[in-house]
């Protein structure tokens, strides 16, 4: 049985349903991201796991034990909040020591473990500082140390990086992932940042309107989105509506406008929506599909082209390999491998 097991978790606030029958199983030591836009119920789900919010229906089990009668202070869960929620009137050491104090850990052992926690998050020498004397990244790491030092069964991260600037955010993604591996703790990350979810987690659960719409390894979720919502939310996607001309042997022949193309896949429907990632589309000399460049955007490491075609508006990413950009208005031809396109459900 899974280490953390959520079954039919449901929460209403007034008339609106925040979390709608959420099921999720997480293995011991696994890192799962709950990814979704704001208001999709991911934070409420996390709060129900922590016990801050009581579910209207459903169960939370940790290591097989029903958590319903267990208050948050007896669940042994470490939480890192979006605002960090450090105690502003306590020093770094007092913040980190608070959980152990509550557990009646002897002072001597407490001091040793505070020291270990500080070096784990590379903040040796900051024990006597107050939170307001630390930078955002340092506060974030104190919050992580405070959550980890109690040796929790489960670590919950609620948008932990959203208050950091872009560069620091990228560093902390890696750092948190490494620390999580090092202490091997089961972790749930709540985030609206798809890159964060893809980089950090073992599995990504994409949430929409209170439900998990897809849960998969990051590569799988990105390459094989279950529906239009996932394909749009995880990275950029070209969604093309096309008619099925011919089918058989795991291949489909599709037509959109006057253009025909083949993809891998199968369907019963006569009309399908397919998703193609912009970086999988390439420019070719002959064949392929005719298009015209509407505008080209320079992104540094790549060019982003917006094009008009028979298939509708398309977006294409091409790595910046030093060549000249294609001029606006130029006619081009596009092609992609047959396995680049995905037929979406629904």
């Amino acid at each position: 049985m899974a280490f953390l097991d959520l079954r039919g978790l449901t929460k209403r606030f007034g008339g609106t349903i925040a979390v709608d029958g959420l099921d999720l199983s997480v293995d011991r030591g696994e890192f799962v991201a709950l990814l979704g836009p704001s208001g999709c119920g991911k934070t409420t789900s996390l709060h129900m796991v922590a016990g801050f919010v009581e579910p209207d229906a459903g169960t939370v089990r940790i290591d097989g034990r029903d958590m319903a009668p267990v208050p948050p202070n007896r669940r042994n869960i470490g939480v890192v909040f979006q605002s960090y929620a450090l105690f502003p009137h306590m020093t770094v050491a007092e913040n980190i020591g608070f959980g152990m104090e509550m557990r009646r850990v002897p002072a001597a052992e407490r001091a040793v473990r505070i020291g270990e926690a500080l070096s784990l998050v590379r903040l040796d020498g900051y024990a006597g500082r107050y939170p307001r004397q630390l930078s955002g990244g340092q506060q974030q790491r104190v919050a992580l140390a405070r959550a980890l030092v109690i040796r929790p069964d489960l670590l919950l991260l609620d948008e932990p990086l959203s208050n950091l600037d872009a560069k620091l955010r990228e560093e902390m993604r890696v750092e948190i992932r490494l620390i999580q591996r090092q202490v091997n703790i089961t972790t749930i990350l709540v985030t609206h940042d798809q890159a964060e979810a893809l980089v950090m987690s073992d599995r990504v659960a994409v949430m929409d309107r209170g439900r998990i719409v897809q849960i998969d390894r990051p590569v799988q979720a990105y390459d094989c989105p279950a529906n239009a919502f996932v394909s749009n939310f995880l990275g950029r996607a070209n969604l093309i509506r096309a008619a099925v001309v011919n089918r058989g042997q795991g291949r489909l022949c599709l037509r959109a406008g006057t253009s025909e193309f083949e993809i891998d896949g199968s369907t019963e429907a006569d009309e399908v929506t397919v998703s193609i990632r912009p970086e999988r589309i390439g420019f070719v000399e002959t064949g392929g599909i005719a298009a015209r460049v509407k505008v080209s955007l320079f992104m540094g490491d790549q060019w982003l082209y917006r094009l008009d075609s028979d298939l509708g508006g398309l977006t294409v990413c091409a790595p910046n390999a030093g060549g000249a950009r294609i001029a606006d208005g130029a006619p081009v031809r596009l092609a992609w491998p047959a396995d680049a396109a995905r037929v979406l459900n629904g």
Partner: peptide
Amino acid sequence: AVEWAAWSLGA
């Protein structure tokens, strides 16, 4: 969240 943090830490 500050109070919740204390709560989750066992207070």
